[in-house]
Write a protein that binds this DNA or RNA. Structure first.
Lengths: 193, 193
DNA sequence: TAAAAATTATGACTAGGTACTAATAGTAAT
DNA sequence: ATTACTATTAGTACCTAGTCATAATTTTTA
C-alpha cells in the first residue's frame, strides 16, 4: 500500500524502532518503494544503518553497569516566566532521559518538565497538582530540545487553577496536558513565610 | 608477542570473549600475525565473524528484555510482576523527592513510579505511553512509602493497552491514573500493493 | 503548464568479512 | 636429503549492507 511520504516515514520509524534488525531491502519491500527511498528516509529521520543499529543495541546493554539514572531535578530550564499567566522552559533530551534500547525519551521526563512548569507558573507558595490529563503526541528522541509552554487557563470553583502545557520539538507538538493545580492562597496576596 | 599456535588460540578466544567488538585486523596486529592466521584460528575455534558476534550480543540482550524492561529502568522497586496482568512497586519518599519548603512529594515522582510500572507490566519489547489521565488524591510527604499497583484493563481497538495504576500510602489512595500504552509488537502484516 | 518535490536508477566506493587456491617456512621421520 | 606435515602468509573473487554523488524520471502542487 503506497502512502505519502510523511505517513511512510513515521511508520518506517516505528517499524525500525520495533524491529531494529531489518535491512533497507526488506523495508523497501514492505513499503513497496525503492531501496533508495528508504535510504533517503533514514537520512531525513537520522536513523543509522543496520549495522550501527545492531551495534548500538549491543553496546547499550554491554555497559549495563552504568545505568542507574535517577530523576533528581529533571525540570528543564525556565527561560520565561510571567506569574499566573504563562511560562516557558527548555529541556534538552540527553542519554539520561531515554530508554537505552530505542533512544526514545521516557514519558515521565516530559511530564516532569510540564508539571514543574505548571507549578512554577502558579504565583503561590504552595502549588500542587490535583489532577492532570496528558497526551504524548509524538516520541521524542535523544538530542532533541523540548520547549514547554504553560499558560494559565483560569480558575475553577474550588481553589484550583487550570494550567495548560504544550511541549514542542521544532514547533511540532510532542506533549500536551491540562493540569489542575491546587493552591493554598488565592492570587498574589499570600506572602507570609 | 609471538607464541605458539595453541597458546595464541586460547588467548585469542579470551580476547574475543572479553571484547567481542574487535576486528580480525586489530587482532592480527595484537598477536603479530597475518589476518589469515586469525581467520584460520577463528575457523578452528568456531568463532564467528565480527558482525555475527555483535549481532549475537545484541539479540541476547534483546531477548532478555523482550519480556520486561530491565528493573533498573523502573522508578521504584518492583516487588510483584505478572506480565500483561498486574504489577506492584514500592517507592520510599526521601528528601530527594520532595519540595524543600513543605516536604510534599513532587508530583512527577509519583507519576514516574506509576508510568514506569505501566511500561514494565506490558509484555512487549517496546511500550510507550500514548496518553494518561491522572489524579493526585492526597499529598505524600517525606518518609512515606508509596505502593503502586498496576493492572492491565484491556486493549483498545488500535494497538493500545490500557493500564490502571493506583498508588497507596497505608491503604489510602494517593494517586491514580489510567495509562493508554502504545505497544509495537502487534505484528501488523498485510501491507500489500 | 511549469516548477518543485519525491522517487528511482546508476556507478563508484567501503568495511569486514567468506571461500578457495597457492606459495613459503620450519620441523620431524624415514 | 627427501618426503611429509604443520603453520603461516598471500592473493583472488565474491558477499552484504551499506555510503556518497549524480542524474533521470515520475508525481504533485502552485
Amino acid at each position: 500500500m503506497k502512502r505519502n511520504k510523511k505517513d511512510r516515514q513515521s511508520t518506517l520509524k516505528e517499524t525500525i524502532e520495533a524491529k531494529p534488525f531489518i535491512t533497507d531491502d526488506a523495508l523497501a519491500k514492505i513499503f513497496d518503494v525503492s531501496i533508495q527511498t528508504i535510504r533517503l528516509d533514514r537520512m531525513e529521520l537520522n536513523i543509522p544503518e543496520l549495522r550501527e543499529r545492531i551495534k548500538s543495541v549491543a553496546t547499550n546493554n554491554w555497559n549495563e553497569t552504568v545505568k542507574a539514572l535517577p530523576i533528581d531535578e529533571v525540570i528543564g530550564e525556565i527561560i520565561d516566566l510571567e506569574l499566573d499567566r504563562r511560562a516557558i522552559s527548555i529541556l534538552d533530551i540527553t542519554a539520561e532521559h531515554v530508554f537505552s534500547r530505542n533512544n526514545i525519551a521516557r514519558g515521565h521526563h516530559l511530564f516532569a518538565q510540564a508539571n514543574s512548569l505548571a507549578v512554577a507558573v502558579i504565583n503561590d507558595e504552595l502549588a500542587l497538582t490535583a489532577n492532570a490529563s496528558i497526551k504524548f503526541t509524538r516520541q521524542v528522541v535523544e538530542g532533541e530540545r523540548v520547549i514547554a509552554k504553560a499558560s494559565v487557563a483560569g480558575t475553577e470553583k474550588t481553589n484550583r487553577t487550570v494550567v495548560e502545557v504544550h511541549s514542542y520539538v521544532d514547533n511540532e507538538t510532542v506533549f500536551s496536558g491540562v493540569f489542575a493545580m491546587f493552591r493554598s492562597n488565592q492570587e498574589k496576596e499570600g506572602n507570609e513565610s
